[in-house]
């Protein structure tokens, strides 16, 4: 196929419009998609069920630089009823990974608290992987007044 100058110009312009449109297509769902992929990687393709895990985060965070979050999972922490790890993800951050906690029988309880950065108002997701292979997740929406990722 031969292209003259006009056609090339037209194509590039068209492609540019598409590229912009592609980015504009609901960025929230794109972020959710990315997070979902990460969750699937963590769980080995298993759809997480709700319940058992509780993620605590403030409804409104004035300063996105330090947002306190805590996560706890109902579990006896012995035998098969054990939480192996809990992953925390932030959908709207430049890099959705936040932290992964690894628990052992010596932990006694599956609960942990930390402080995280949030770039903007977004969903924070916690996913727990149990020893018997089941996965649970919880999501909290945190409204952020001042973002915390520099820029």
């Amino acid at each position: 196929m031969k292209l003259d100058r006009r056609q090339v110009l037209g194509l590039t312009a068209g492609a540019a419009v598409f590229a912009v449109a592609g980015i504009r297509v609901n960025p929230a769902s794109a972020a959710a998609e990315e997070t979902k992929k990460q969750v699937m990687e963590f769980t080995g393709g298993k759809e997480p069920a709700s319940g058992k895990i509780t993620l605590k985060a403030p409804e409104i965070a004035e300063n996105g630089n330090t947002v306190p979050i805590s996560v706890s999972v109902e579990s006896a922490m012995s035998g098969d009823d054990m939480v192996e790890s809990v992953m925390i993800l932030a959908e709207g951050n430049p890099n959705p990974d936040v932290a992964t906690f690894h628990f052992t029988e010596m932990s006694g309880e599956a609960s942990a608290t930390t402080r995280m950065r949030l770039a903007k108002t977004q969903n924070v997701v916690a996913v727990a992987k149990m020893k018997d292979g089941s996965v649970y997740s919880d999501t909290r929406l945190v409204k952020v007044t001042i973002g915390g990722c520099g820029g």
């Binding site: 630089n65 936040v98 006694g108 930390t114 402080r115 950065r117």
Partner: peptide
Amino acid sequence: VFGCDIDPAISANPYLEFT
């Protein structure tokens, strides 16, 4: 007892509480 993989989204002066 407890371990944690930390990513850049954890705040400065990382604080951790666990059991």
